[in-house]
Design a protein around this nucleic acid. Structure first.
Lengths: 343, 343
DNA sequence: GTCACTAGTGGAAGCGCTTCCAGTTCCACT
DNA sequence: AGTGGAACTGGAAGCGCTTCCACTAGTGAC
């Protein structure tokens, strides 16, 4: 099992291009061309491919990267502490979707996490080191440092979620505003007139945009909006906020929670207080993650197409790397209200 | 924004070792030694480091890998379809923790996903290509093919979760058996006597081991174990199983669910049937993920230290890469029963 | 003073690949 | 038959780094 060798030396070395070339009876350059789709006669190409197949040839990434000055790798930058990422289904989906999409396109995705001790420097080093051809950033928090860094790196970059500064970065996002509006309109349509909004911190564009939609729906309906309780997108925050809500007079008759986790926390708080959704307070969430159907009552919520979102970001990146041009951006994906039991 | 250049050529190239060497007034080989901790006089070392600092030198990974014949990268193999990974908090945590740990150790983690069309070949190609120094496998499902493949690759490999064949692979795991036993003992201690077990498919060692603990606790207490309902670790499976459970006669008075998601589904089924936990049926989960505190009643559950688990796997790998020797394995981490409301 | 020796250094080779360049062949034309 | 060009090919350079080797200059021991 264990070879007590020096690191990385004992394994049988895989076949090299030279060996393939020799086996196919051609020169290395011809073999390279045959394999990468350069000029080569049909017979040669086939012979080389056969030889490569037989020898189990897989091009050495490092060598190729060195020669071509590109790495076929992209950074997936998530400027959050790792401990946060797995509490956030959004990021989990983004991570796996982007990874899979890159993988399919022959790009190696590299997760770049934030070192809690040294938030930006680690990322900076990595992005400057010529180890990736591009970066996809999924960030919720305003962080000027990071944006400067990305600008300075002059690395093709795609944001998932509108970047706070509204700068020149290509990005994809869901239509947070319209989603929030539809949720609010649904509650208004149910006759609710004192709708509270449980939201995320307003240094995230998602929270800002969802709040805007919430207010917009009220304005259009001529109804006075209820309070906005700023917190975080977590169940704990929902639980805390709902406590404050229940002490208000007049008590709100509905809640628009900006995430499913917030909604779940809120419902938990209601249940604990002997109240039920939707009878006492109607609750609408945002996300439509697994939680929505794991809690009782099942959550009425705004479904956001996170998979498609991440896919769009990856496509944008891949397109740029292939053609040198950016595709159309921003891409704003629609949300969809899913009516279940809680409102 | 968009440079209409060919892929990967326009960015300002980072400083090379040659430039650092010149700036420090030494040869390239000396600079290399100074930076990598080889022999070098104190004065030289300092001059080189200063120059590197000033020029923002970051060694080119590809070049280093090519020269040293090792990649400083490890594969994180998750032989599941990407669409599954983000439904499973366990894998999400494993992914981010391992990534962060490798990152810290100067290793580049590379996620290797399974191509649904071609389950093993893609992985095989990757592992054989000499692009990684080792592999960490987080897999729940028995897959002989994969194990053969890993053996053949002769790549240092660590499993997260006991590998099905019980082979010679270094691995880390939580003490599933003891965890299940403590959960069952808790239920027995509450006076429950007809405890059903909702479990995962028995081609996963986690399910097998948890079932063993469940049975063991019953044997020790001299109580006849209730039925084992084989399903998957999902809320849907829990919902379905609880339906069957409620039609049984005599009806079980408690449920040990092998995951929080299963438990959440079960509680949802109970609630829908007008029953409550723990009054009608006591429910214990396994995981202690976010769901546990997002549902009502809050879940009594067996907390498993997934972060530590992933960290241990990464440490094992890093240790082997550094020293050529495997540290002690298997490492079996303890679980801890967290008593909340549901039992 | 000479002799090993060690510590420090620079030159050069080479990791496996791509790609430029110059050379060869072969064909379709004058 | 002689030409230009296209299609293909092999040689060689070079990507940025590590590392072997030969070399120089110091050290202490004799």
């Amino acid at each position: 099992m264990s070879d007590a060798s020096t690191p990385g030396s004992a394994r049988p070395r895989p076949a090299t291009l030279d060996e393939v070339a020799r086996a196919a009876g051609v020169s290395r350059s011809t073999a390279s061309r045959a394999l990468t789709g350069g000029v080569a006669s049909a017979a040669t190409a086939q012979a080389v491919r056969r030889a490569a197949q037989e020898l189990g040839f897989v091009p050495n990434r490092a060598a190729r990267g060195l020669a071509r000055n590109c790495t076929d790798a992209i950074a997936l930058v998530i400027p959050e502490t790792p401990s946060f990422i797995f509490y956030d289904p959004f990021l989990a989906i983004v991570t796996s979707t982007v990874s899979a999409a890159c993988w399919k396109a022959g790009l190696q995705p590299m997760m770049v996490l934030m070192d809690p001790d040294d938030p930006v420097h680690t990322i900076e080093r990595f992005l400057h080191s010529g180890n990736v051809d591009g970066a996809i950033v999924a960030s919720f928090h305003h962080s000027l440092q990071l944006e400067q860094l990305l600008t300075a790196a002059a690395l093709p970059t795609v944001f998932i979620g509108r970047p706070p500064a509204g700068g020149d970065f290509p990005y994809v996002d869901v239509d947070n505003r319209a989603g929030a509006r539809s949720a609010t309109e649904h509650l208004l349509g149910l006759g609710r007139r004192r709708i509270a909004c449980l939201g995320g911190a307003l240094d995230m564009t998602a929270a800002v945009d969802r709040r805007a939609g919430f207010l917009e729906a009220h304005r259009q309906a001529g109804v006075e909006p209820g309070p906005y309780l700023e917190g975080s997108f977590t169940a704990r925050s929902g639980l805390e906020s709902v406590g404050r809500l229940l002490r208000m007079d007049p008590r709100p008759d509905a809640i628009f929670a900006q995430s499913d986790a917030l909604a779940a926390g809120a419902i938990q708080g209601l249940t604990a207080a002997g109240l039920t959704a939707p009878d006492d307070l109607a609750v609408v969430g945002f996300d439509d993650f697994a939680t929505a159907t794991e809690i009782f009552p099942n959550l009425t919520t705004v479904a956001q197409p996170v998979v498609e979102l991440a896919q769009a970001a990856a496509d944008l990146m891949v397109g740029h790397l292939k053609t040198g041009q950016w595709g159309a951006w921003p891409q704003i994906l629609p949300t969809r209200l899913v009516v279940r039991q809680s409102a």
